[in-house]
Design a protein around this nucleic acid. Structure first.
Lengths: 234, 234
DNA sequence: TCCCAACTGTCTCCATTCCGAAAGGATAAT
DNA sequence: ATTATCCTTTCGGAATGGAGACAGTTGGGA
């Protein structure tokens, strides 16, 4: 799930936000002033940032400038929390490249929707090229279109199978335990004695046919996507 | 670079827009009410116009009519800025002929994308009319006229249906979640527990008849417009 | 002003697909 | 050979999306 950094000095609000974000399944990073926020952003690279405009050390505008000035954080969308609906704040926020803003007091629901929208846009906009599918040996994956091909023949995967494949691929050459797959693909956290993952891996392999060998079993640990297409042994 | 006329009375928003447009390399003309907007449009012939629906002297709809009534400004695409809940239906149809609209508060990023899309279309179809229509297999879409044909037979779509179709088409071969469609077509931010999108897709498909197969359902994810007219599965 | 037609969003119902669990068979490790 | 681990098959319940119906709105015309 997505990681959200909350830069907010009011303790109570910080708690409320963190609680609600976690409840929605986000991973939450917290910072209570601008400098800490900048540091955390640079180190942890969150998927987006909630930024209070009024902070004890730096004004939020400066934090925003700081974020935009650094290549590693430049592209992280910022959602501004402004104390009053002053137009000036809005202007500054946008000028500085904030993605959106909400005015306090805001409803948590509204805020969550904005966050969702931003993350959706960020994800959707990532592969802007028309035909940029991942290619791995005989396997081709187009995440934007949600389509998969093996040897130029399209394979119909269900959404879970697709997520499982992408997750394995993104972390190729690293063993994924069943528990971590359950968490990342299913969004569950259960210390599991279930064979659910096995079942889906099996179905996925079936559908992948010739490309099934890319998914390797690591006995006693979990599953691993091959490091390179050639490494697969017959 | 393209010239954009911004007709907007709120000073701050005017500034935000101008700043961001210039940053993107556009030349910006500004007007703070409808009459000034009409004059400026006639004199300077911008490549497109951002028009607030709520202006001090004239409603934006009237400005739009005025633009369409004058030969020198008739072909300039108009992008409407509307507040939430304002009637947007009539804005789009034949009546007013606006090219697109965004609902306030909008993210500047989103707005810039829309502007890009409009200018791209406009440039591609320089000699304004005859081949202004997009062709996709048996489907023909004329965004300027808001008309659609299937196998050379015109299909009557409502404004939402049209917008939905265009949105899907412009992002073809990319799955659109229901939530993102709700946001981009309806201008709503909502947890999608609703079947509204499904219903409209269904109605759209009905009307498209033979071309309905271009709109594909991706179970558990959303909808996707086919990548190419031939790829449609039986 | 009133009425009618068109449009839109929501609801319910239903067929289909999909998921997760269970259980027994197969395979690798010791 | 024995055990631990993984694969395979099967099946009922749940989720998903489409079809149809309906009421609230809106705009246009009588």
């Amino acid at each position: 799930m997505a990681r959200v950094l909350v830069i907010e000095d009011e303790r109570d609000l910080q708690q409320v936000l963190a609680y609600n974000l976690r409840k929605e399944g986000y991973e939450v990073l917290q910072a209570v002033d601008g400098l800490e926020g900048l540091r955390t952003a640079k180190v942890h690279r969150p998927d987006m940032i909630l930024l209070d405009l009024m902070l004890p050390d730096l004004p939020g505008t400066e934090v925003c400038k700081g974020l935009k000035a650094d290549v590693t954080t430049r592209d992280i969308p910022v959602l501004m929390l402004t104390a009053k609906g002053e137009e000036i704040d809005r202007v500054l926020g946008f000028e500085l490249g904030a993605e959106d803003y909400v005015v306090k007091p805001f409803s948590v629901r509204e805020l969550l929707l904005r966050i969702q929208a931003i993350l959706r846009r960020a994800h959707g906009a990532k592969p802007s090229n028309p035909e940029d599918a991942l290619i791995f040996g005989r396997l081709r994956i187009d995440t934007a279109a949600h389509r998969v091909w093996v040897d130029d023949l399209e394979v119909q995967l269900t959404s879970i199978e697709f997520r499982l494949l992408v997750m394995l691929y993104e972390r190729r050459n690293r063993v994924q335990s069943r528990a971590s797959l359950l968490e990342d693909v299913w969004g569950l956290q259960a210390d599991t004695e279930t064979r659910t993952v096995d079942t889906h891996v099996k179905r996925l392999r079936e559908k992948l046919g010739a490309a099934e060998a890319y998914i390797e079993t690591v006995r006693g640990v979990g599953y691993r996507f091959a490091a390179s297409p050639d490494e697969v042994h017959a």
